[in-house]
Write a protein that binds this DNA or RNA. Structure first.
Lengths: 202, 202
DNA sequence: TATCTAATTAGATATGCATCTAATGAGGTA
DNA sequence: TACCTCATTAGATGCATATCTAATTAGATA
């Protein structure tokens, strides 16, 4: 379901709004366009801190940015908030936040990327879909057992030629840990919650 | 002043919504009433964790609770969300989130020293912050009413274990007066101006 | 009374994130 | 080129909080 995307977005929006400093900044920006310095003075925070908050607000579309020389002018993006309001007004929309939806979505991704023989057709480029595929793959290893790199490779090669990338991604997504050439599964609690958002964009 | 409350409420609402597990729970509760066990199974969390989340959702009015024997049935409180949606739809409402100098500072102090249940985590050491906290506390007593020491203690104990210190500070900051074991509030004009002038403790 | 079940509270751990200082980048001007 | 200003990035620190296990409360039942 595209529902899943929606709910991830929604979560990020709420996270962006769940901080007093950022609400203050939004308040100021709702009045008029402002520069970083100006904002820092008004909310009594250092510029890097304000910059950090603005980056987050911008990432979720709550504010817009206009450059003028080396001054950056930020402004409220009013549609973002009214859109949010709209999304909240239906009870069904809220019901759509229930977790079961995720499994559905994952099944769909797997249908797309895995062929009838169980071979991975390609490694998804999108972070979320890659997560879904990796989750499926990692569950084919026993929890609590330790695998030498050679064996990890062997198992992965049964699914896709690029075992090196897959191994690396296991680590990156915290689905596996590695120590001196030996791999083991991490508990799903460590990664199952992250439906695949980047922590920061790097 | 009412603004201040509003924005504090709003912040708590967003904080409650800014967590994937709680969004999942809300989704399930939007479908129908559910017990803690049931929810724990569906979101794959332990019961105490779910209990913790539900307490927060309830505190901000997003869910309601009904007891039946020792089963607790939680349900979505749909008005809470539509109300939120309404509050977001006006640009002026957002502009109202802008900080208001002193008030905002006091709000920030309170956020730091008062936990979500309204308990005072500790008595600030800095004079100014202690002033802010005491001002908040003393406003919970009616003006013009007289309180025997026992009742002052009882009320303070709801906020912090060291009621004796708090009582003494009320006197020191001229927020209350005492005569033969009976206490009463002094008018704010007597102390509201001193955002923490030297008065001498002890 | 003792016991069973459902839920909450207490206490511990670990991760996320707000904030700061210092360093770097990027545009403008003399 | 050198310098100035505004902003962002890097890295460190400390607090808030999501989650778990263990202990406790509360209702129901035998």
């Amino acid at each position: 379901m595209a529902d899943d995307n929606d709910s991830a977005d929604l979560l990020l929006l709420f996270k962006a709004l769940a901080d007093r400093s950022r609400l203050n900044l939004l308040g100021l920006l709702a009045q008029r366009e402002r520069s970083v310095q100006e904002l820092a003075a008004e909310v009594v925070l250092k510029e890097p801190t304000v910059s950090h908050h603005l980056a987050m607000l911008k990432r979720v579309g709550l504010v817009s940015l206009r450059h003028d020389a080396n001054t950056h002018w930020y402004a409220l993006q009013p549609d973002a908030i009214t859109d949010l309001a709209k999304r909240l007004s239906s009870r069904d929309a809220i019901a759509g936040l229930a977790p079961e939806a995720a499994d559905d979505w994952q099944a769909k991704v797997l249908e797309t990327f895995v062929d009838a023989d169980g071979k991975l057709k390609s490694i998804p480029a999108s972070r979320k879909k890659r997560w879904a595929v990796l989750a499926w793959l990692v569950r084919q290893f026993d929890e609590g057992r330790r695998y030498p790199e050679k064996e990890v490779n062997a198992r992965l090669l049964a699914r896709h030629w690029d075992s090196a990338t897959l191994r690396r991604e296991f680590i990156g997504y915290r689905m596996m840990a590695r120590e001196s050439g030996v791999y083991w599964r991490l508990p799903e609690s460590a990664w199952a919650a992250e439906t695949g958002e980047p922590f920061q964009d790097a």
